[in-house]
Design a binder for these strands. Structure first.
Lengths: 240, 240
DNA sequence: CAGTGGTCTAGACCACAGA
DNA sequence: CTGTGGTCTAGACCACTGT
């Protein structure tokens, strides 16, 4: 493990998830943890902060640190709202299979709206990519993606059939670090209904996303239209 | 200002929003900031971390700290995804008016599902509250709320017409600190269509939420059904 | 190499909770 | 009062960037 605080975070997280620290129980105090992990108090704090952000524990000045209940849900595909990679995550994590069908893949020139999202000049070249994503052979997402061709060179059909993110991170060695999203419900269009097998009254869960590299440059603007009955987005928020 | 790091956070945030540090510009390095604010480097780091979480800046080891672009959107009611209080926030923030119509307000006994969400025993008393929320006289949210009556005593019609959160925080002096949410798109029911003036093909943006007090106790379980055309949820996520 | 942010320390003092 | 987490310091050493 590279960092001490991440190591400690993983260890404590594991202890919580395996039930060694049960729900509602009190964690050892910070001083005890510094001895247990042979580190300073600041390092323990940093590790525990990660668990607070994750909604796994809460801390109370004067009282201590306690394990929160962490409920699992199973009926749908749960996308952690703060996740950046979307379906790619699921495919590597579980025994489900995510595949793609490419509807369109072309090189175009950015119009004003897209140029603004990607923070590039108008008429710069961009990839325009339309895919249907299948989850265990079931069509579940219509995805429209725009990427700056200068920033992400060498996209091929082959790559689109797998994961764009894998290519960017492992082949181009770029780091995807953040994303801003807008989530909304939307009436399904005829196009949606055809590709995702929906009736006209069945809606779409739309996610509009701009994803950023570690230098702050937007590299992808995408609009994903999810089957309403297969996706939920979960999030945990707390006051800072 | 209570804390030095919050003071510094506010100052730098202000400088970014007023354009004193323009988009894409580099912030002063940490050492310079420690001199400017007369504090240690850890304190600067803590302040800057808040700005990173907010998506206002990004930091790059070896290079520096830079201002990210922060775009505003205006066409819809934008709910910051990490917000806990929902509409109450908007009503106090803007010159728009949020009102309520109470459809039902009764004391009941928790069934298994609700008891589990609120982490109370089955058959404990709970408030069952149904409200329509109006935004500038337009009905826009159907809200179903369950709260433990033991935890949040003294709810009245009067309070429901205003903000429950205000009552809990200012009258009962309880602190609402976190919430876990599930967001989904849903077909509108006849009930939705009637109260929110929707046609059958118009969907609902549903938010299911459990909100927690600072002692980790869930105090509210709610399901809010939003007009799909008036609400968007925005979020910013980054890898930790 | 110098400049910058990332991690980590050892300890000080404060604020809050509960006996 | 003791036990707890929150804030803050002054400084060390490391990792990465670009000259």
């Amino acid at each position: 493990m590279a960092n001490k605080y991440q190591h400690i975070y993983n260890k404590i997280r594991e202890s919580i998830l395996t039930g060694e620290y049960p729900v509602n129980s009190k964690l050892p105090d910070e001083i005890t943890l510094t001895k247990q992990f042979e580190c300073s108090r600041m390092t323990i704090k940093k590790a525990l902060e990660l668990l607070v952000n994750e909604g796994l524990i809460y801390r109370h000045q004067g009282k201590g640190t306690f394990v929160l209940s962490h409920v699992e849900r199973k009926s749908k595909i749960i996308v952690p709202e703060r996740d950046i990679k979307g379906l790619s995550l699921i495919s590597s994590d579980t025994n489900h299979k995510v595949t793609s069908e490419i509807l369109n893949f072309s090189l175009e020139f950015a119009n004003e709206s897209i140029a603004q999202k990607l923070q590039i000049p108008i008429d710069n070249p961009i990839y325009n990519i339309s895919r249907i994503r299948f989850f265990d052979q079931v069509p579940c997402v219509l995805e429209q993606t725009y990427m700056s061709a200068a920033l992400i060179p060498g996209i091929t059909h082959e790559i689109l059939n797998k994961s764009i993110y894998d290519y960017i991170e492992n082949q181009l060695n770029l780091k995807i670090v953040s994303a801003s999203k807008v989530l909304r419900a939307s009436i399904s269009t005829e196009n949606d209904q055809e590709h995702l097998n929906l009736t006209p009254i069945e809606p779409i869960f739309e996610v509009e996303q701009v994803a950023y590299l570690d230098n702050g440059q937007p590299f992808e603007y995408s609009i994903s239209r999810h089957r309403y009955d297969l996706f939920e987005f979960s999030s945990f928020s707390f006051r800072q």
